[in-house]
Design a protein around this nucleic acid. Sequence first.
DNA 1: TTCCCTCGTATTTTT
DNA 2: TACGAGGGAA
Length: 765
Amino acid sequence: MISLPLNPEQREAVDHPEGALLVLAGAGSGKTRVLTARVARLIENGVAPEHILAVTFTNKAATEMRERIAELISHSIHGLWVGTFHSIAARLLRRESYHTSRDRWFTIYDKDDSARALKEVMEALGHDPKRWSPRAVQNRISSAKNSLVEADQYASSAFDVLSSVVADVYPAYETMLNRRNAYDFDDLLLECVKLLEGTTDVADRYASQFIHVLVDEYQDTNHAQYRMVKAFAARHRNLCVVGDDDQSIYAWRGADLNNILDFERDFEGAHVVRLERNYRSTRSILEVANAVIECNVGRKPKRLRTEREMGHPVQVVHCADERQEASWVASEIERLLTTYRVNNFAILYRTNAQSRAFEEAFRRQGLPYRIVGGVPFYERREIKDVLAYLRLVVNRSDDAAFQRAIIWPRRGVGTKSLKRLAALAMQQQRPLFEMACQVDGLDGISKVACRGLRRFTEGCEALRALLPTLTAKEALESCIETFGLASALSEEEDGADRLENVSELLATTAIFVRESVEDADPEASDLELYLQSAALRTDLDEQDFDSEAITFMTLHNAKGLEFPIVFLTGLEEGLFPLTRALESEGGLEEERRLFYVGVTRAMDLLALSYVDQRWRAGMQSHSIPSSFLGELPAEHLSKRVVGRSRQGRSQSRKQLRGSFRGSPSIGLSHAVPGGASFSWHRETLQRAEGSARDGGQEDGEVRYDYGDSQVPLELSPGARIVHPQFGLGEIVKIYGVGQEMKAEIDFEKVGRKKVLVVHAELRPA
DNA sequence: TTCCCTCGTATTTTT
DNA sequence: TACGAGGGAA
């Protein structure tokens, strides 16, 4: 039997025999445990693995679930269907390609590919992409697809000028994707639903196969996903969904909260289990979380409980600007490192752009960090370029891949030849690749370009012939070799990094081959699976959270994770809640749920920070504290001010007053609570006392002077520095900014060199 | 054709 | 700030 400790509610959910089951699982209540235990229990009870389908949102969740189930039981789980909505949809579309308009070698377009395709379509139809941004059109089409509105139906729902453009573009875009044998992200779901609802024998086959269907994070399902689930569970009606309406944070992407709110009405006789025992956070943290979420109206009432101790109060930290915020967090972490490990910390923020200040501060202090999200690995230029070759070899109709590959490395084919080729292809309704194969003698294309194209297509064809004998890794290596991609990269300015990324890609490809052997879909080739996973993989899946580093990420990425210590930063009105997000209906409640998600990530210690001034979009902006801060129970908070920016202070004080006026839950005269349990801040307090003497305290707030202890490394021509390998040198020139910043340096021993400042670890001489 | 520079603009979250 | 697009020069 399964040896997994479960509380009574968890057990009820795991043991519930048949029919519809809704598990309302609060944050940290052991929802993954329930899901995995339930699948394990089903298998132990004799349900064959291939009759069970478990759907998640992220690859990471899917992998984890598979592993945990395997650990729990002695049976083999071979044949079990575990995957994300998108990967399962892709798998179905591949298996059933006979019933669809594409063949099984279809390409999956990511956002970038599809935006480019849209731009092309818009230009062809005479819609100026500058007047209507392809991104906006893309969003419209995306939400249409998520609501299962197809191209031909869209026109009837057009209600403004943009939507009339979309109504025009959408069908042409669909035609283009079809011609290219490609699906975009949303198509996977839409086409899968069409397949299931429109093809009786396919629907029957899957509906009878899946005796049990389980869905994780049900609150994040959109309409297409909902219909997918419904179709899968149509026959046996053993549907178990797990979710938390309070953690629904993807409404902007089409998630429909009503899916979970209406579940009981939707599946009559559904049994409901509530998991309200939290095993993660201290009471202080939970009280704050509960107070936050209770401000929302549209939710199922519930309240998290914990048996943990009160713990430290939640810190509310006021800084002058984002640099000080970052420095404070860094120094706080440094101090806590005596009792915690670096991977116990997470820094969360609303927008990716906020990571920069933290990167700088952490680099300065020599603290290791990892950024989850940002520029995802699979969206890096070199990675997309290399993969484009493989995509094109596999699917010759993939014009997006063709355009990418032909441009780089340079081979005498420029925009002019490409335009000409595209015009001819358009005229004859044929893929670019085919056009390029017979380019000789076509007018408008130079001799040089012809030669380049010929060598290119011949290379592709030669590779294509070899393909059946190659593993994914070998195929990728052949691409790199045939087209001299590695040497082309190494000639580029920052080629070393890019080359490294490509080797990393090869390494993950090698690992992939091993994993895919275990994958339950025996019909799919190694390469098909590889390209699919490369298209659907996200940054989150690549992260190794065990490695020794502090994690930086957006709140969205943090869902489902937990950390002993969490810094939730940038709590300013306009940034969090984000103004843009407030424009949509229910926006504020969704932002609040996001805040709730952030708060509930913390196990032991939580700090919330906000600043007076912040650089946003190249402009210095003043901000007032987030209205969320006014919703917190004062008895579980401790407040402090960091830094001593002169104007910043007087100004912020006014803003603080204004912002909190009329909110009784937080008082400015509120001093440090918590008495004895304040060891976290002992050192802070001592320093604060010191500064209180010379600087003075106002309103009972604890002041902590960060002061000028940080001397930033001066990087300007003439400055003398030390490089760990090259030794002493003098800076000649600085160019580039941020990550890209490079320094040209005259070294005493090794002469003049260019180094990437990010990696160089320069110190003042 | 390609490279480089300048200019303009857009800046949320992402399976 | 930061990236892409577009223009101009080699």
